[in-house]
Amino acid sequence: MTFLTYLISGISLGSVYAIIALGYTMVYGIAKMLNFAHGDVIMVGAYIAYCVMSYLGLSPIVSVIAAMIVCTLLGIIIERLAYKPLRSAASLAVLITAIGVSYFLQNSALLIWGSATKIFPTVVAGDGVSLFGGQVRITAVALTTILTCVVIMIALTMFIKMTKIGKAMRAVSEDKGAAQLMGINVNGTISVTFAIGSALAAIAGVLLCSAYPNLMPTTGSLPGIKAFTAAVFGGIGSIPGAMLGGILLGIIEIFAKAYISTQLSDAIVFAVLIIVLLVKPTGLLGKQIHEKV
């Protein structure tokens, strides 16, 4: 029964990775860049939610919404100021800029909120669920995280598949030039992508800090890197891939911690990534696109 408990907490942690990984994979799919500042947007989201709850005394729901609004704007501004001017630059320049933005956000947080760890308040009230006569307990946070992840996955898939903007995003991700010939505003589409990714990052930040309540300016970086790993693991550019990669990564991490070694768990996670990429370089659900002449 402890196995089941571990599995559930793995899925829960993995759900957070998955939500973060969506931001990486969408931005990569559409703007063809790795936004390494994405993890730090999570941290900003968590701080905003923290402030709204602790200083303004508002409800968790309001705090999540506030965090989403701030992060959405932040995502759009980062894209406009830092990445848009580099649209036709070498990808290495964009990558280095993203790392720069990451440090900028971390240091800004340090300046605003200080280096002392903040203890994130409880967002999800309730006792959770007991299964098998109390042998397996699912905390309310874990349950909320998993459900949120499922809802986001379904909503995002529908959005991409059905809506006009969603279709435009797919068109831009395949061929920017052809998309422009159709009348699609590529810059606008990229902004929307950053906005969605950053709003999801805010949700991920709140969920992450609900489960692991130590909030500091570097809170976002390791989960950010792991979620990036998850996105690559699942096949970068693929939305279901990001979800699958995230959840598997969470499960592997928790199992590694539980059954092998707490210290080595991160090493094991990355070792799994390396093995998967050796066997399947495009990731689990990544597609190799063949052109037909």
Partner: peptide, 27 residues
């Protein structure tokens, strides 16, 4: 701007077709 040209009544069928290969014909 390039994305505003099509609404002026000018459309282009690009070299190499450049259809959106992962979208359906109707899409």
């Amino acid at each position: 701007a390039p994305h505003k040209i099509v609404s002026h009544g000018l459309a282009q069928v690009p070299e190499g077709r450049r259809v959106f290969t992962q979208m359906s014909v109707e899409e």
